[in-house]
Design a protein around this nucleic acid. Structure first.
Length: 571
RNA sequence: GGGCCUGUAGCUCAGUUGGUUAGAGCAGAGCGCUCAUAACGCUUUUGUCGUAGGUUCAAGUCCUACCGGGCCUACCA
């Protein structure tokens, strides 16, 4: 038994996430966590809301709520949605927790003591009307290069030229539109990542089997131009972890907070501490996952994220942990995902294009989404969501191949033998053939789950379902029954055991349906089939079962068309 | 501009360190079955593996150039 620590990238607090966010971190991490638990490993699966930063403050203002209250409410909203998708976090924390505040300040102190933090004085745009400093991209104006009047302070979207806010002609606040701006001198802390470049580079090189997406992004940042640059880790904001605190190795940083990308990854650790607190455990409980001097040396740590998160997880966060000089557990494997697009284009919050997590749950059961998204996960390149593909995948894989198999077997048995595992007959060649086919596919399934190639794993799982239908067709109990009811009984008995097996194997991807299947089969446990023959005789003769309701209702063409129209967006 | 990824059957994708007739699912066609959510099974059509060169006894797989698609480029997170 291994100890596996799993973290999903933290969803940002400012709104409800769309399916692209879900498939890039929370969903695959959940399937992986569920699988590892099923295999008997000790799993700690952590997620949290990422609550700090300018967008959170603005979203709160728009909702006309104090930012802390807004975050508290949105945390609950996101928690409910996560529950709706059956995301099995051991703890879903908040980056604004006291635990994270303490830990962030602690690590910053250590970094400061290690000489890895530098005070830098820089010029920032301050909006007098808004009463706040503005991040570069919250300043708009006319592009000096192409004349587009919607250029942002960091870059012009129109001509893609990199800009400095002071380059803009007629700059204005993107928040209020105010032109009452001024340049102010302000002091910030920088994390001296540049001095850790060699160390980080070697660390990345020492990793084997990481997705090319992960390493290529890390390498780019390490070697592009002058190499890894130092990074500002503080901001002039009200909402966040205060930079000035008792014991801080710097002064004059009052009224500033740490940058979200500094404190957000730390929340992985802090959320584990929150978990310990919530369960009445002492510090050793969470430290055994995170401190290699306190039991975490045997932990295997896997992170899941969209590709936009990779630089912070391959460089910034490791730099923070390594630089602290303390024995923190570093990540062992970073699984990164490409983007999911919607009907050939981008998901767009502003244009109402695409599907958001809450809407998805209102339309279809979570298993449908889980199955389609994971069997089409953007693991090797971007992938595209279309309603047509969704309909086809759900109908074919879930309703026809799996759902109908359960249906045909249980109904046939009920009709001929009653609702209990029938006795009579013996197993022969057909059972041996399908068992060996499933053994082969199961090995592939397990191998793909281990290497976190979930898309391939779903294909293996599907093939295991298909094997049941092939077996049934070959054995044809409906024909055999006429001459030899006992032989037909043996086939049905075996098929019922296949159903139970499918309930176990399918749980990482479609937990609700899996639970229904196991319940209908009267399964006493969901133990992984380490011994396949034993697993296929787990349902003894005479064990009662029920015919489950239709497991997966099909999506009709009419429904599909209706949904296509509803989600087409404003444009 | 620079960097990275990607281009394989109508569609979505697999193709391990280059090695015999390039695979799967969906869609299409034919047959079978009738237990089942008009479901299932079997058989089957289609590929100049983006283009052009090169290396090699041998390239979808390596190299170069070009074309197409996507992403990143550090103060949104």
């Amino acid at each position: 038994m291994a100890r596996i620590l799993i973290t999903s990238a933290l969803p940002y607090i400012n709104g409800i996430k769309h399916l692209g966010n879900l498939v890039g971190s929370q969903l695959p991490s959940d399937a992986y966590a569920r699988y590892m638990r099923l295999r008997g490993h000790e799993v700690m699966y952590i997620c949290a809301t990422d609550e700090h930063g300018t967008p959170a403050e603005l979203a709160a203002a728009k909702a006309d709520k104090p930012v802390d209250e807004f975050c508290k409410d949105m945390w609950q909203v996101q928690k409910d949605i996560a529950d709706g998708f059956r995301l099995s976090f051991d703890y879903f924390g908040r980056s604004s927790s006291q635990r994270n505040r303490d830990l962030t300040q602690h690590l910053a102190t250590k970094l400061g003591e290690a000489g890895l933090i530098e005070e830098v004085s820089e010029k920032q745009i301050y909006s007098i009307t808004d009463g706040r400093y503005l991040p570069d991209r919250y300043i708009e104006g006319t592009c000096p290069n192409c004349g587009d009047d919607k250029a942002r302070g960091d870059q012009c979207e129109n001509c893609t030229k990199q800009l400095d806010p002071t380059d803009l002609i007629n700059p204005r606040s993107a928040i209020s539109g105010s032109t009452d701006l001024e340049v102010r001198e302000t002091k910030h802390l920088y994390l001296r990542q540049s001095v850790m470049r060699e160390k980080l580079d070697k660390w990345i090189d020492s990793q084997v089997g990481w997705p090319i997406l992960t390493t290529s992004i890390a390498k780019k940042w390490l070697h592009d131009g002058d190499g890894l640059r130092d990074r500002g880790i503080t901001r002039d904001l009200d909402w966040g972890v205060p930079v000035q605190y008792e014991g801080a190795p710097w002064s004059g940083m009052d009224g500033k907070v740490f940058y979200v990308w500094f404190d957000a990854p730390i929340e992985y650790i802090a959320a584990t501490a929150e978990w310990a607190d919530a369960n009445g455990l002492d510090d050793s409980a969470w430290e055994s996952w995170w401190r290699t001097d306190k039991g975490a040396d045997d932990v295997h740590y896997v992170q899941f994220m969209g590709k936009d998160n990779v630089p912070f997880h391959t460089l910034g966060f490791p730099a923070t942990l390594m630089g602290s000089g303390e024995p923190w557990k570093l990540v062992d494997f970073i699984k990164s995902y490409n983007w999911l697009t919607y009907e050939g284009g981008k998901f767009s919050t502003s244009q109402g294009r695409g599907i958001f997590m809450n809407q998805a749950l209102e339309i279809m059961p979570s298993d449908y989404w889980r199955w389609w998204l994971l069997s089409n996960a953007p693991e090797s390149s971007d992938s595209d969501f279309t309603w047509e593909s969704f309909q086809a995948g759900v109908n074919k894989d879930l309703a026809d191949v799996l759902g109908n198999f359960v249906s045909r077997v249980t109904k046939f048995c009920r009709g001929k033998f009653g609702e209990a595992v029938p006795e009579g007959g013996t197993y022969g060649e057909a059972e041996a053939t399908v068992t060996s086919e499933i053994a082969k596919r199961l090995a592939a399934y397990q191998s793909h789950m281990e290497s976190i190639e979930l898309r391939k794993a779903t294909a293996d799982l599907r093939a295991i379902w298909v094997a049941g239908n092939e077996y049934l067709q070959a054995a044809a109990p409906w024909t055999v029954y006429k001459q030899d009811p006992a032989a037909a009984a043996a086939t049905v008995r075996f098929a019922l055991n296949l159903i139970r097996l499918y309930g176990v194997l399918s749980a990482p991807f479609i937990p609700d349906a899996a639970a229904k299947i196991l319940d209908a089969m009267g399964a006493s446990d969901a133990a992984w089939p380490d011994d396949l023959d034993a697993a296929l005789s787990a349902m003894p003769i005479g064990q009662a079962f029920t015919v489950p309701e239709v497991l997966f209702a099909k999506i009709s063409d009419d429904t599909r068309v209706e949904l296509e129209e509803r989600f087409a967006g404003a444009s």
